[in-house]
Computed example of a mutant assay.
Amino acid sequence: MLLGDVAHLRTGDKGETSQISVIAYDPADFALIARTVTTKRVAAHLAHLPIRTATRYELPALGALNFVLEGALAGGVTRSLALDAHGKTLGAQLLDLPLEDAA
């Protein structure tokens, strides 16, 4: 099972920081998401990025986690030479995170 099977996301970026909010489709799946989608696993899944710090905020009433990835956008969206290295692309990559490996 992949993260995208049980959750969708919203993203944003400011400067070189990307924010990815992972939101459970079904509130019953929030515990699984909270247990398996850790900052360590997110950083490892996006290891090709120059992430300096990854911070996770839990919003259980919304069934969501918000990840703030400082440095992920390599100097900022407008300064990066990478093609479409914005939050939406990073979020799409994160939806491919396997959940079985961490259970």
Rank of each mutant, 00 (worst) to 15 (best):
L9V: 05
D13Q: 12
T11K: 06
N66Y: 00
L62S: 13
R52E: 14
Q19N: 15
L65D: 04
G76F: 06
G15P: 04
L62R: 15
F30G: 06
R52A: 10
A34Y: 10
P60L: 00
G12C: 05
V22Q: 04
T17L: 08
A34K: 15
G63S: 07
I33C: 08
A47L: 06
I51W: 00
A47M: 06
R79P: 01
V22S: 09
V22Y: 03
I20E: 01
A61D: 04
A24F: 02
D29V: 01
A82N: 07
T78A: 15
H48R: 12
L9A: 07
S18F: 01
R56N: 10
L32P: 08
R41T: 11
T53P: 00
A82Y: 13
K40V: 13
L73D: 11
A64W: 03
V68W: 00
H48A: 13
K40L: 14
A44V: 06
V37A: 00
I33M: 11
E58T: 12
L69W: 01
A47N: 13
I23Q: 08
T11W: 01
L9G: 10
E70K: 13
D13G: 06
F30V: 07
I33T: 00
R56G: 05
E58M: 02
K14L: 04
A64S: 13
V77R: 08
I20C: 03
T36M: 14
A24W: 04
A74C: 12
